[in-house]
Design a binder for these strands. Structure first.
Lengths: 136, 136
DNA sequence: CTACCCCTACGATGGAGCTTCGTAGCAAGG
DNA sequence: CCTTGCTACGAAGCTCCATCGTAGGGGTAG
Protein backbone atom coordinates (compact mmCIF):
# COMPACT_ATOMS: atom_id res chain seq x y z
CA UNK A 1 0.00 0.00 0.00
CA UNK A 2 2.35 2.69 1.18
CA UNK A 3 1.51 6.35 1.18
CA UNK A 4 1.75 9.04 -1.46
CA UNK A 5 4.14 11.89 -1.93
CA UNK A 6 2.89 15.45 -2.08
CA UNK A 7 2.16 15.70 -5.74
CA UNK A 8 0.83 12.19 -5.85
CA UNK A 9 -1.58 13.04 -3.07
CA UNK A 10 -2.66 16.23 -4.82
CA UNK A 11 -3.43 14.27 -7.95
CA UNK A 12 -5.26 11.47 -6.18
CA UNK A 13 -7.20 14.02 -4.21
CA UNK A 14 -8.55 15.64 -7.35
CA UNK A 15 -9.44 12.39 -9.00
CA UNK A 16 -11.22 11.24 -5.88
CA UNK A 17 -13.09 14.49 -5.49
CA UNK A 18 -14.16 14.76 -9.10
CA UNK A 19 -15.16 11.14 -9.16
CA UNK A 20 -14.90 10.78 -12.92
CA UNK A 21 -12.19 9.93 -15.45
CA UNK A 22 -9.92 12.94 -15.89
CA UNK A 23 -7.14 13.86 -18.26
CA UNK A 24 -3.68 15.10 -17.37
CA UNK A 25 -4.68 18.47 -18.75
CA UNK A 26 -7.59 18.82 -16.35
CA UNK A 27 -5.48 17.88 -13.36
CA UNK A 28 -2.65 20.16 -14.38
CA UNK A 29 -4.92 23.13 -14.87
CA UNK A 30 -6.46 22.65 -11.48
CA UNK A 31 -3.16 22.29 -9.64
CA UNK A 32 -1.79 25.26 -11.58
CA UNK A 33 -4.33 27.50 -9.87
CA UNK A 34 -2.48 26.99 -6.63
CA UNK A 35 1.12 26.81 -7.75
CA UNK A 36 3.33 26.65 -10.78
CA UNK A 37 3.62 23.19 -12.20
CA UNK A 38 4.72 21.86 -15.56
CA UNK A 39 2.43 19.71 -17.63
CA UNK A 40 5.04 17.00 -17.95
CA UNK A 41 5.56 16.85 -14.22
CA UNK A 42 1.97 15.91 -13.61
CA UNK A 43 1.96 13.58 -16.58
CA UNK A 44 5.02 11.76 -15.34
CA UNK A 45 3.60 11.29 -11.87
CA UNK A 46 0.23 10.15 -13.17
CA UNK A 47 2.00 7.66 -15.37
CA UNK A 48 3.91 6.41 -12.34
CA UNK A 49 0.67 6.11 -10.37
CA UNK A 50 -0.77 4.17 -13.29
CA UNK A 51 2.19 1.81 -13.44
CA UNK A 52 2.06 1.30 -9.70
CA UNK A 53 -1.55 0.31 -9.97
CA UNK A 54 -3.18 3.26 -8.28
CA UNK A 55 -4.80 4.49 -11.47
CA UNK A 56 -6.36 2.93 -14.51
CA UNK A 57 -6.59 4.72 -17.82
CA UNK A 58 -8.29 4.55 -21.15
CA UNK A 59 -7.83 6.44 -24.35
CA UNK A 60 -10.13 9.34 -25.08
CA UNK A 61 -9.12 10.73 -28.42
CA UNK A 62 -5.47 11.59 -28.12
CA UNK A 63 -5.42 11.82 -24.37
CA UNK A 64 -5.65 9.29 -21.60
CA UNK A 65 -8.37 9.50 -19.02
CA UNK A 66 -7.32 8.34 -15.56
CA UNK A 67 -9.39 6.84 -12.78
CA UNK A 68 -8.37 5.74 -9.27
CA UNK A 69 -8.53 2.00 -8.78
CA UNK A 70 -9.66 2.47 -5.20
CA UNK A 71 -11.85 5.08 -3.57
CA UNK A 72 -10.49 7.49 -1.03
CA UNK A 73 -12.05 5.59 1.83
CA UNK A 74 -10.88 2.26 0.52
CA UNK A 75 -7.39 3.64 0.36
CA UNK A 76 -7.68 4.91 3.91
CA UNK A 77 -8.90 1.54 5.07
CA UNK A 78 -5.96 -0.07 3.31
CA UNK A 79 -3.51 2.17 5.12
CA UNK A 80 -5.13 1.32 8.41
CA UNK A 81 -4.96 -2.35 7.62
CA UNK A 82 -1.29 -2.03 6.71
CA UNK A 83 -0.61 -0.34 10.01
CA UNK A 84 -2.53 -2.91 12.01
CA UNK A 85 -0.85 -5.75 10.18
CA UNK A 86 2.53 -4.78 11.51
CA UNK A 87 1.51 -5.11 15.09
CA UNK A 88 1.83 -8.32 17.04
CA UNK A 89 -0.82 -7.81 19.65
CA UNK A 90 -3.64 -6.61 17.45
CA UNK A 91 -6.15 -6.52 20.23
CA UNK A 92 -3.92 -4.17 22.20
CA UNK A 93 -3.32 -2.02 19.14
CA UNK A 94 -7.05 -1.79 18.48
CA UNK A 95 -7.58 -0.93 22.11
CA UNK A 96 -5.14 1.96 21.89
CA UNK A 97 -6.75 2.99 18.64
CA UNK A 98 -10.28 3.26 19.93
CA UNK A 99 -9.19 4.87 23.16
CA UNK A 100 -8.16 8.01 21.37
CA UNK A 101 -11.13 8.12 19.07
CA UNK A 102 -13.75 10.82 19.17
CA UNK A 103 -17.28 9.91 20.14
CA UNK A 104 -18.50 10.26 16.59
CA UNK A 105 -15.81 7.97 15.33
CA UNK A 106 -16.55 5.39 17.98
CA UNK A 107 -20.20 5.56 17.08
CA UNK A 108 -19.43 5.15 13.39
CA UNK A 109 -17.25 2.21 14.24
CA UNK A 110 -20.01 0.55 16.23
CA UNK A 111 -22.37 1.01 13.34
CA UNK A 112 -19.87 -0.44 10.93
CA UNK A 113 -19.35 -3.45 13.15
CA UNK A 114 -23.05 -4.03 13.46
CA UNK A 115 -23.38 -4.01 9.71
CA UNK A 116 -20.83 -6.68 9.06
CA UNK A 117 -22.07 -9.14 11.59
CA UNK A 118 -24.35 -9.64 14.55
CA UNK A 119 -23.49 -8.20 17.89
CA UNK A 120 -22.13 -10.82 20.25
CA UNK A 121 -24.96 -12.24 22.31
CA UNK A 122 -27.66 -11.08 19.92
CA UNK A 123 -29.29 -13.56 17.61
CA UNK A 124 -30.27 -11.15 14.88
CA UNK A 125 -27.74 -10.94 12.14
CA UNK A 126 -29.84 -11.47 9.05
CA UNK A 127 -30.19 -7.77 8.29
CA UNK A 128 -28.00 -5.83 5.99
CA UNK A 129 -26.15 -6.85 2.86
CA UNK A 130 -24.77 -10.33 3.17
CA UNK A 131 -21.12 -9.81 2.54
CA UNK A 132 -19.17 -11.60 5.18
CA UNK A 133 -21.38 -14.30 6.59
CA UNK A 134 -18.65 -16.36 8.12
CA UNK A 135 -19.69 -18.00 11.37
CA UNK A 136 -17.16 -18.31 14.10
CA UNK B 1 6.60 11.94 9.81
CA UNK B 2 5.44 8.49 10.61
CA UNK B 3 6.77 5.17 9.45
CA UNK B 4 10.31 3.91 9.75
CA UNK B 5 12.98 2.92 7.30
CA UNK B 6 14.31 -0.60 7.28
CA UNK B 7 17.07 -0.22 9.78
CA UNK B 8 14.95 2.02 11.93
CA UNK B 9 12.25 -0.62 12.01
CA UNK B 10 14.76 -3.33 12.86
CA UNK B 11 16.00 -1.30 15.77
CA UNK B 12 12.56 -0.38 17.07
CA UNK B 13 11.51 -3.98 16.70
CA UNK B 14 14.25 -5.18 18.99
CA UNK B 15 13.66 -2.53 21.59
CA UNK B 16 9.97 -3.29 21.58
CA UNK B 17 10.51 -7.02 21.80
CA UNK B 18 13.09 -6.87 24.55
CA UNK B 19 11.02 -4.38 26.47
CA UNK B 20 13.93 -2.99 28.46
CA UNK B 21 16.55 -0.28 28.02
CA UNK B 22 19.20 -1.48 25.59
CA UNK B 23 22.58 -0.20 24.47
CA UNK B 24 23.76 0.30 20.92
CA UNK B 25 26.11 -2.64 21.43
CA UNK B 26 23.26 -5.00 22.24
CA UNK B 27 21.25 -3.93 19.24
CA UNK B 28 24.24 -4.10 16.91
CA UNK B 29 25.19 -7.57 18.03
CA UNK B 30 21.67 -8.81 17.49
CA UNK B 31 21.30 -7.32 14.03
CA UNK B 32 24.79 -8.55 13.14
CA UNK B 33 23.55 -12.12 13.46
CA UNK B 34 21.46 -11.60 10.38
CA UNK B 35 23.62 -9.33 8.28
CA UNK B 36 26.78 -7.29 8.30
CA UNK B 37 26.35 -3.95 9.94
CA UNK B 38 28.79 -1.43 11.38
CA UNK B 39 28.51 -0.29 14.95
CA UNK B 40 28.44 3.34 13.96
CA UNK B 41 25.62 2.76 11.52
CA UNK B 42 23.32 1.54 14.24
CA UNK B 43 24.53 4.22 16.61
CA UNK B 44 23.82 6.96 14.10
CA UNK B 45 20.32 5.71 13.42
CA UNK B 46 19.52 5.28 17.08
CA UNK B 47 20.73 8.79 17.68
CA UNK B 48 18.46 10.01 14.91
CA UNK B 49 15.52 8.13 16.41
CA UNK B 50 16.36 9.73 19.72
CA UNK B 51 16.44 13.20 18.24
CA UNK B 52 13.20 12.60 16.43
CA UNK B 53 11.56 11.66 19.68
CA UNK B 54 11.03 7.96 19.11
CA UNK B 55 13.56 6.95 21.74
CA UNK B 56 14.64 8.23 25.11
CA UNK B 57 18.03 7.47 26.61
CA UNK B 58 19.95 7.59 29.83
CA UNK B 59 23.57 7.07 30.66
CA UNK B 60 24.66 3.71 31.97
CA UNK B 61 28.37 3.91 32.65
CA UNK B 62 29.94 4.99 29.39
CA UNK B 63 27.09 3.87 27.18
CA UNK B 64 23.59 5.12 26.58
CA UNK B 65 20.60 2.95 27.18
CA UNK B 66 17.70 3.54 24.81
CA UNK B 67 13.98 3.05 25.31
CA UNK B 68 11.06 3.56 22.91
CA UNK B 69 8.81 6.44 23.91
CA UNK B 70 5.77 4.55 22.68
CA UNK B 71 4.95 0.87 22.70
CA UNK B 72 4.58 -1.09 19.51
CA UNK B 73 0.81 -1.10 19.78
CA UNK B 74 0.66 2.59 20.56
CA UNK B 75 2.72 3.23 17.51
CA UNK B 76 0.43 1.05 15.43
CA UNK B 77 -2.59 2.90 16.75
CA UNK B 78 -0.91 6.17 15.83
CA UNK B 79 -0.36 5.00 12.29
CA UNK B 80 -3.98 3.98 12.02
CA UNK B 81 -5.04 7.34 13.40
CA UNK B 82 -2.86 9.12 10.86
CA UNK B 83 -4.43 7.12 8.08
CA UNK B 84 -7.98 7.71 9.24
CA UNK B 85 -7.34 11.39 9.74
CA UNK B 86 -6.70 11.90 6.06
CA UNK B 87 -10.06 10.62 5.02
CA UNK B 88 -13.08 12.83 4.57
CA UNK B 89 -15.83 10.36 5.14
CA UNK B 90 -14.52 8.62 8.21
CA UNK B 91 -17.59 6.51 8.67
CA UNK B 92 -17.17 5.11 5.18
CA UNK B 93 -13.48 4.53 5.75
CA UNK B 94 -14.20 2.69 8.98
CA UNK B 95 -16.83 0.67 7.18
CA UNK B 96 -14.33 -0.44 4.55
CA UNK B 97 -11.84 -1.13 7.28
CA UNK B 98 -14.01 -3.47 9.30
CA UNK B 99 -15.36 -5.20 6.22
CA UNK B 100 -12.01 -6.73 5.49
CA UNK B 101 -11.20 -7.61 9.05
CA UNK B 102 -10.89 -11.15 10.28
CA UNK B 103 -13.37 -12.44 12.80
CA UNK B 104 -10.86 -12.32 15.59
CA UNK B 105 -10.02 -8.74 14.82
CA UNK B 106 -13.66 -7.76 14.70
CA UNK B 107 -14.19 -9.44 18.01
CA UNK B 108 -11.20 -7.64 19.53
CA UNK B 109 -12.54 -4.40 18.18
CA UNK B 110 -15.94 -4.98 19.76
CA UNK B 111 -14.28 -5.70 23.05
CA UNK B 112 -12.20 -2.57 22.81
CA UNK B 113 -15.27 -0.50 22.06
CA UNK B 114 -17.13 -1.96 24.98
CA UNK B 115 -14.29 -1.07 27.26
CA UNK B 116 -14.20 2.59 26.39
CA UNK B 117 -17.91 3.16 26.65
CA UNK B 118 -19.97 0.05 26.59
CA UNK B 119 -23.40 1.66 26.68
CA UNK B 120 -24.68 3.47 23.60
CA UNK B 121 -25.38 7.10 24.29
CA UNK B 122 -22.84 7.28 27.05
CA UNK B 123 -19.78 9.21 26.01
CA UNK B 124 -16.39 7.78 26.72
CA UNK B 125 -14.69 9.73 29.45
CA UNK B 126 -11.20 9.77 28.14
CA UNK B 127 -9.16 10.99 31.02
CA UNK B 128 -6.00 12.83 30.12
CA UNK B 129 -4.22 12.28 26.82
CA UNK B 130 -1.29 10.75 28.58
CA UNK B 131 1.51 9.74 26.30
CA UNK B 132 3.21 6.81 27.87
CA UNK B 133 6.93 7.17 28.07
CA UNK B 134 7.58 4.81 30.90
CA UNK B 135 9.80 1.82 30.30
CA UNK B 136 8.56 -1.36 31.78
C1' DC C 1 -1.20 19.81 -48.27
C1' DT C 2 0.90 22.43 -44.60
C1' DA C 3 1.30 24.58 -40.24
C1' DC C 4 0.03 24.48 -35.71
C1' DC C 5 -1.37 22.67 -31.41
C1' DC C 6 -1.99 19.21 -28.02
C1' DC C 7 -0.70 15.11 -26.15
C1' DT C 8 2.57 11.24 -25.18
C1' DA C 9 7.13 8.99 -24.40
C1' DC C 10 11.65 9.12 -22.56
C1' DG C 11 15.25 10.62 -20.10
C1' DA C 12 17.97 13.90 -17.15
C1' DT C 13 18.48 16.60 -12.98
C1' DG C 14 17.80 17.75 -8.13
C1' DG C 15 16.37 17.18 -3.30
C1' DA C 16 14.90 14.72 0.96
C1' DG C 17 15.36 11.04 3.93
C1' DC C 18 17.47 6.75 5.15
C1' DT C 19 21.78 3.92 5.28
C1' DT C 20 26.41 3.23 5.62
C1' DC C 21 30.74 3.83 7.63
C1' DG C 22 35.42 6.09 8.86
C1' DT C 23 38.05 8.96 11.83
C1' DA C 24 38.92 11.43 15.98
C1' DG C 25 38.44 11.76 20.79
C1' DC C 26 37.54 10.42 25.58
C1' DA C 27 37.26 7.46 29.66
C1' DA C 28 38.05 3.15 32.32
C1' DG C 29 40.88 -0.93 33.37
C1' DG C 30 45.20 -3.55 33.51
C1' DC D 1 51.16 3.89 29.48
C1' DC D 2 48.41 1.11 26.45
C1' DT D 3 44.34 -1.29 25.13
C1' DT D 4 39.41 -1.45 24.76
C1' DG D 5 34.87 0.31 24.08
C1' DC D 6 31.81 4.00 23.46
C1' DT D 7 30.50 8.69 21.61
C1' DA D 8 30.48 12.66 18.39
C1' DC D 9 30.85 14.39 13.80
C1' DG D 10 30.54 14.25 9.26
C1' DA D 11 30.98 12.40 4.50
C1' DA D 12 29.26 9.47 0.93
C1' DG D 13 25.76 6.57 -1.37
C1' DC D 14 21.07 4.97 -2.43
C1' DT D 15 16.29 5.18 -3.31
C1' DC D 16 12.13 7.71 -4.26
C1' DC D 17 9.67 11.50 -5.46
C1' DA D 18 9.41 15.93 -8.01
C1' DT D 19 10.55 18.62 -11.75
C1' DC D 20 11.06 19.66 -16.35
C1' DG D 21 12.95 19.68 -21.43
C1' DT D 22 13.04 17.75 -25.82
C1' DA D 23 11.52 14.79 -29.45
C1' DG D 24 7.79 12.91 -31.90
C1' DG D 25 3.02 11.79 -33.55
C1' DG D 26 -1.64 12.71 -34.92
C1' DG D 27 -5.70 15.66 -35.55
C1' DT D 28 -7.49 20.29 -37.28
C1' DA D 29 -7.74 24.80 -39.34
C1' DG D 30 -6.52 27.20 -43.31
Amino acid sequence: MRSFGNLEAAIMDRLWTWDRPATVREVVDDIARERDIAYTTVMTVMDILFRKGWLTREKDGRAWRYCPTAGREEYTAGLMRDALGESRDRAAALQHFVERMSDEEAEALRTALQRIGGVPGAAADASGPADAAAPR
